[in-house]
Design a protein around this nucleic acid. Structure first.
Lengths: 233, 233
DNA sequence: CCAGACTATATTTTCGAAAATCATACCGTT
DNA sequence: AACGGTATGATTTTCGAAAATATAGTCTGG
């Protein structure tokens, strides 16, 4: 018997819909389903083993996050990618992340410092273990996400954190898009280390400068190595 | 086809789910259903004449917008209100709106100027007609929303405009919350006029200053006159 | 009288059939 | 051949019954 018969069906949420939302989100971010590709119910039904309405609920939630494009009466598709969208997501991320890092540095307590340091430590450990293709490693992705999350977690605004998280996901999809074409990842480890140090030493201006450069250079990389995918269609 | 001619079930969207999403959103913003109130399917079913799954889809969409609170396996409820949430929404609005007004002033073309002027004109006309309780007048609400939308529409970022729209809705719910207790609206007409003039004359710094004051004073008003509703639970 | 287990009821969540809608191919006419 | 309309098949959307889960109420043993 395959896993689905033995393993619990709901891994990430209490409801099947929430679980499928989570799984499909990860697949879209990882570009396991191509941008712009139609999401037909027959296919999804077989893949996720859920019914029409449950899938519909998941797709509706992802549409609100900007990862899925709902075309009324004509179904859903994976949100398309474009240079314009990449630019918008990048600019929005800079605007919000810069503000949040300032607030976090101002408000962060001991627990925040510990979270920043420990998440970076885990990230570096994973990078040491397998320094080749970080985006292919699910553990690296989680650790990377958690480090950036930890940096701003003390900002004091759940509202802005939620918006930041959505934008992070949308940006991560672009990183995956270019991962297959990028010859070699640049020195992210050093950048993360520098950001952490600036944050912990409460040097807000420096941290802001580093974060902005980090975000923008990632986006530039995507535009360079996945440009052909952004122009087509 | 004949059904829609007699009694159009779908007013705002092509699908029933999208229509209910829209109608329920307006009801929540207008505080026709109280913050924190449970949204039970029996009740919604009778009220909107739709089935479980269709309602579920609408509630999921509104949960993603922050107007509904989804409690897994325990149904949905109208998103609660609090001082903390009001502060977060206000701060987030200032952060984003200030940036967007700057971009709009920089990029806005003739069409933008026309949109700003004409939406303000309509707003003032409605205010002249019935200057008493603007928030009770659906037309005023729409015109007010459209004026503020027009101001930033030329910013060039659909992504940030969508985020801004969500925050605007969440803030509008707080305005409605305090509307019943506020003795008399302050001089909004004058503020709108001043914002428009600053924008059209491309005085970005002044426009930013006025917008921020506009947003914050509205929030202060809510905190003053609806404070008792924010502390209770 | 209380804590915990059990039962009954209320409510949410999920399912697959059925209705509605869209896309395509076909046909007849000009 | 080009065009417009229509039938056909594919796909989405909606429905209400059925399953799963939570909540309230009851009972029992201590």
């Amino acid at each position: 018997m395959p896993d689905s018969a033995i393993r619990p069906r709901k891994e990430f949420g209490k409801t099947i819909a929430a679980d499928i939302t989570h799984r499909l989100r990860e697949e879209i971010i990882a570009c396991a389903v191509a941008p712009g590709e139609p999401l037909r119910f027959d296919v999804l039904r077989e893949r996720f083993g859920a019914s029409f309405t449950t899938l519909r609920e998941a797709l509706t939630a992802l549409a609100a996050e900007g990862l899925v494009d709902a075309q009324e009466q004509r179904g859903f598709r994976v949100a398309p990618v474009s240079r314009q969208d990449l630019t918008e997501v990048t600019d929005a991320r800079v605007l919000i992340e810069v503000e949040l890092i300032r607030r976090a540095i101002e408000k962060g307590d001991d627990d925040w410092e510990i979270a920043v340091i420990s998440t970076l430590h885990r990230l570096k450990r994973i990078e040491q273990r397998d320094p080749e293709h970080p985006l292919r490693d699910p553990e690296w992705k989680i650790a990377h996400r958690q480090f950036h999350q930890a940096l701003v977690s003390a900002c004091g605004s759940a509202t802005l954190l939620a918006i930041r998280a959505e934008l992070f996901d949308r940006a991560e999809r672009y990183r995956h898009l270019s991962a297959n074409f990028r010859p070699r990842p640049r020195d992210k480890a050093g950048e993360h280390q520098a950001i952490m140090q600036a944050a912990i030493s409460r040097n807000a201006d420096l941290a802001v400068q580093l974060i902005e450069a980090h975000i923008r250079s990632t986006a530039d990389n995507v535009a360079t190595y996945a440009g052909h995918l952004l122009d087509a269609e």
